[in-house]
C-alpha cells in the first residue's frame, strides 16, 4: 500500500463526472426501492428478486467495471502511468493501493445503496438487506480485482469486462447451468442465501466452494495485475 498513490487515485476517481454518474445510479436504486415499497408494501420475495436482478445482477458488476477499470485505465490510456511507474514504488503495491480505492468506491456507491434499498423494502428482520449487502460487498471486491487486472492487460477492458458480465453471466449462464458455477454473481448469491431467511434466495454454488473461489479469484487477479504491471508495454493509440 502506498498512501500517496491511493490519495491521487481517489482524487481522480471521485473528482470528475464519473463520481456524479455513479452517485446518480445509487440514487436511482434507492428511489426504485422506495417506489416498490410504496406501491407493493413489504414483500420479502419481491425484495430478494429485485435486489438479485437489479442490484447484484446489474449494478454491482457495472460499478465494479467502471470503478475497477477507472482507477488505472485512463492513466494507461493517456500514457501518464509512466510517471507513476518511474517512481521507486513496487508495482504490486501500486496495484494494491488502486484496488483499495476501487473497493472503497464500490462500497460507498454499491454496497451502501444496496443495503439501504433492502432496508427500505423489507426492513432488517428477514435478513434480505444484510444478505444482499454482504453479497454486494464480496462481489464488489472480486469484480474490482478482476476488472483492474483486465484494465492492465488490455485497452478494451471495459468492453471485455462487459462481455463477461452480460454475455457470460446473463446469456450463457441462463442456458448452460455449468457456466453459473464460474460466475461471481452466483458466488455472491450463495453468501446472500446463507444470511437471508431460507427460501428467499437461491444460488447454484455451495457457500464453501463460493468462498474459496471468491478469495482465490480476488487474490490471484490482484497478484497477476501486479506482475503484468511490471512488464507493462505502453502501446500507441491504434
Amino acid at each position: 500500500m502506498n498512501a500517496t498513490v491511493a490519495r491521487l487515485t481517489g482524487k481522480a476517481l471521485f473528482g470528475g463526472r464519473r463520481a456524479l454518474l455513479l452517485l446518480t445510479l445509487s440514487v436511482i436504486l434507492v428511489a426504485l426501492a422506495v417506489l416498490l415499497r410504496l406501491s407493493i408494501g413489504v414483500d420479502h420475495q419481491v425484495s430478494a428478486d429485485f435486489l438479485g436482478a437489479v442490484a447484484l445482477g446489474t449494478m454491482v458488476p457495472l460499478f465494479g467495471l467502471i470503478v475497477g477499470t477507472g482507477v488505472i485505465g485512463p492513466e494507461i490510456d493517456d500514457g501518464s502511468i509512466i510517471y507513476l511507474l518511474a517512481k521507486p514504488v513496487p508495482r504490486p503495491s501500486i496495484v494494491l493501493s488502486k484496488l483499495a480505492v476501487a473497493v472503497v468506491a464500490t462500497i460507498v456507491f454499491a454496497t451502501v445503496p444496496t443495503f439501504l434499498a433492502g432496508v427500505i423494502m423489507s426492513g432488517l428482520s428477514s435478513g434480505v438487506a444484510l444478505g444482499f449487502a454482504v453479497a454486494a460487498l464480496v462481489a464488489s471486491l472480486a469484480y474490482s480485482a478482476i476488472f483492474l487486472l483486465l484494465a492492465v492487460v488490455t485497452r478494451h477492458a471495459v468492453v471485455y469486462g462487459l462481455a463477461y458480465a452480460l454475455i457470460w453471466e446473463s446469456l450463457i449462464g441462463g442456458f448452460v447451468p455449468g457456466a453459473r458455477t464460474l460466475s461471481v454473481q452466483q458466488w455472491a448469491l450463495s453468501v446472500a442465501e446463507r444470511i437471508a431467511e431460507p427460501g428467499l434466495v437461491s444460488s447454484d454454488v455451495r457457500l464453501a466452494v463460493a468462498g474459496v473461489l471468491l478469495a482465490a479469484v480476488t487474490i490471484l487477479a490482484t497478484w497477476y495485475a501486479g506482475q503484468r504491471l511490471r512488464v507493462l508495454k505502453l502501446a500507441g493509440e491504434e
Binding site: 454518474l21 437489479v54 446489474t58 449494478m59 457495472l62 467495471l65 490510456d77 471495459v158 462487459l162
Partner: peptide
Amino acid sequence: RGFGVAAIITVLALSYGA
C-alpha cells in the same frame, strides 16, 4: 473512449435490467 463506453452501457444495461 473508456468513459463513453461505460456511460452507454450503464444507461442501456441498467435501464433494461431495471
